[in-house]
Design a protein around this nucleic acid. Sequence first.
DNA 1: TAATTGTACTTTGTATACAAAAAATGATTG
DNA 2: CAATCATTTTTTGTATACAAAGTACAATTA
Lengths: 223, 223
Amino acid sequence: MDEFLPLRDVVFNTLRKAILTGELKPGERLMEIHLANRLGVSRTPIREAIRKLELEGLVIMIPRRGAEVAQITEKGLKDVLEVRRALDALCAELACDRITEEEQGRLKEACGAFERATRTKDATIIAKADVKFHDIIIQATGNQRLVQLINNLSEQMYRYRFEYIKDENRHDSLVNEHRIIYQSIVSGDKKRAAETARLHIDNQEKSIIRQIRLEQEQAARKK
Amino acid sequence: MDEFLPLRDVVFNTLRKAILTGELKPGERLMEIHLANRLGVSRTPIREAIRKLELEGLVIMIPRRGAEVAQITEKGLKDVLEVRRALDALCAELACDRITEEEQGRLKEACGAFERATRTKDATIIAKADVKFHDIIIQATGNQRLVQLINNLSEQMYRYRFEYIKDENRHDSLVNEHRIIYQSIVSGDKKRAAETARLHIDNQEKSIIRQIRLEQEQAARKK
DNA sequence: TAATTGTACTTTGTATACAAAAAATGATTG
DNA sequence: CAATCATTTTTTGTATACAAAGTACAATTA
């Protein structure tokens, strides 16, 4: 499939995924020769991939020392979520105005599919259904720049998303929020759509921050 | 000053500036050897800089053909401004809650400085005063991610900003809007601050879109 | 023993080399 | 004269080479 992508893009995708899934841990150094050997390419594509990761904020560069996986701080996550809150609300509002009949149908289906997914109690399935639902809304805005920005911001929390989805106590309210968002969008109620989208992020934030604190405590105890 | 930056970053900054100022025109190819000779470096730093420009959206890659300066379409600009509208409103709201006494002082000063700048009728001076005013607000949010995103989005319109500032008929309303934004923020009136910030972008949008249509007409007439 | 300095080893930063694809040129043929 | 195909040139994509900065470790000295 990706056989015809330039190696730099293959490497970029590979490294990005490794960082997002936690396979490469925050603070870990990305050493070029090591990665080159591991991925069976030369240093050139590795370096070019790192330049993109750098701009995306997934790695930070230390001069003459190379790249390391960016640390995720509680402050950093709060900042990301604060922006996402505004952008998700914007998405919901724009979708109210611009969603097509066809997209409305798919959104309804995705909303139902999400409810069914929660009943499986399988976090992977639920996460996929969740992404699908929100993707339809984001696409319905017809704003490519917005799509790109939200994807990038979501990325930063990939690791924590999963834990959030696992919390079964939240499932009912998640389903409920999705349903309200769906209804508001098809009925064109911008205010309610935006407000619920914000609430949706607020709930995620609480869960993720709890998660982070836990990890930090564990890290501190290790020392 | 930048003597100790890696060459790739020097090249990145140079190329970015060249694109934003219009020195490198939309559609123009970025050929590596040519740029390398022109800037007195090898292809390696050039390529790494291009990878960053690529992710920033300032150039687009065509496989096996290299990079060219991204075209700016009316749709693309509308998309950018739609996002900025939301983010600038967010900035204004956050600033209401978080601005420090010291920043309030600087904002007042910047607001007055902007008014004085308009009286010079010198677009460069006005543009600088405008940036300074808005920078204080953005910084007052304390959200680094937001700062970075807004900077990146502003960048995309760099070329048009200037023309917008030149329109002297708008100066009075610009000064007025700044004053309202300043007053709303120091008095903590989030709603009014956000609404005025949105209005501020709307006015820019009208002016910039007019500008773009003009350019496109001229381009069409040439053929 | 602790600190410091010198040396060997890594690792990055930059330049160059080489292969393969695309573009341009020109020759040949209908 | 036009069109097509071969050939040359240009340009990208990838690998490698080399220099300089950084790091680690050991030996030496206070």
